[in-house]
C-alpha cells in the first residue's frame, strides 16, 4: 500500500524515528534528484540533500498540516540547493533571476552518463533558464507538482508559476532545435 503524506505526518507525531524513516523512504530520491538538477554535481547534491533532511527533521513541528507536506519538503530542498550554490561561490550573486548554465558543467561530474546525448542536452537547456523558470519547469515536469504547490516552493503566485513554466518550455524547445 502506498504511503501518503498523512501517514508520514501521523508517524512523525507518534514515533519520530519511524516517521523520519518513512519520510526518507518516500522522499529521499525525489528530493535528491530535484537538488541534483539544480546543483548538477553529485557530491554537492548529496551534501545538500543530507542538510535538507536534517533541516526537515529539526523543524518538522513548523510544518502546518493545512499546507502540502510535499511542497514544504521541496521548498526546504530548493533553499538548501540555492544556499549551497551561493556558499560555494559557484554562482556569485545567485538569485532567482540568474541562470546557472555558465557556472555549472555537466561533464565535470564523475557520476555523469555521456551516453545519452539528448538527455544531456535537455539538462543543458534547463540550466540555461533563469532560476525561477528552471524551478517551475523542473518541479512541474519531473516532480509533477501542482502550480499551487510550486507557488509554495518558490514564493510566487500560481499564475506566475504557470507563466514561468510555459516560458521555460518555449525556451527549451528553441534551445533543443538550435542545438540539434
Amino acid at each position: 500500500m502506498a504511503v501518503t503524506d498523512n501517514d508520514i505526518i501521523q508517524a512523525m507525531r507518534e514515533d519520530a524515528e519511524r516517521g523520519c524513516r518513512l519520510l526518507m523512504a518516500n522522499y529521499k530520491e525525489p528530493l535528491y534528484w530535484h537538488i541534483r538538477r539544480l546543483v548538477v554535481n553529485h557530491d554537492d547534491a548529496q551534501d545538500a540533500t543530507q542538510e535538507a533532511f536534517i533541516r526537515i527533521f529539526r523543524s518538522f513541528n513548523q510544518h502546518s498540516e493545512e499546507n502540502s507536506l510535499r511542497a514544504w519538503l521541496f521548498r526546504i530542498a530548493t533553499n538548501e540547493a540555492l544556499r549551497l550554490l551561493g556558499r560555494q561561490k559557484k554562482a556569485t550573486m545567485l538569485s532567482l533571476e540568474d541562470s546557472t548554465a555558465e557556472l555549472l558543467s555537466l561533464k565535470a561530474d564523475e557520476y555523469y552518463d555521456d551516453g545519452d546525448a539528448l538527455a544531456a542536452r535537455l539538462q543543458q537547456a534547463i540550466l540555461h533558464l533563469p532560476a525561477k523558470q528552471q524551478l517551475a519547469f523542473n518541479l512541474r515536469y519531473y516532480d509533477e507538482l501542482s502550480y499551487d504547490e510550486i507557488a509554495t516552493v518558490t514564493g510566487a503566485t500560481a499564475a506566475n508559476v504557470k507563466a514561468n513554466y510555459h516560458h521555460a518550455k518555449e525556451k527549451i524547445i528553441k534551445y533543443m532545435n538550435e542545438n540539434d
Binding site: 541534483r36 543530507q50 557520476y111 515536469y141
Partner: peptide, 20 residues
C-alpha cells in the same frame, strides 16, 4: 524524464543511514 546523471551503487541505501 531521463537524465544524464548517475549515482554511486547503493547510494540511496546509505544516505538514509547517514541522515539518521
Amino acid at each position: 524524464k531521463r537524465m544524464p546523471y548517475t549515482v554511486p551503487d547503493g547510494f540511496f541505501d546509505t544516505i538514509e543511514e547517514n541522515v539518521m
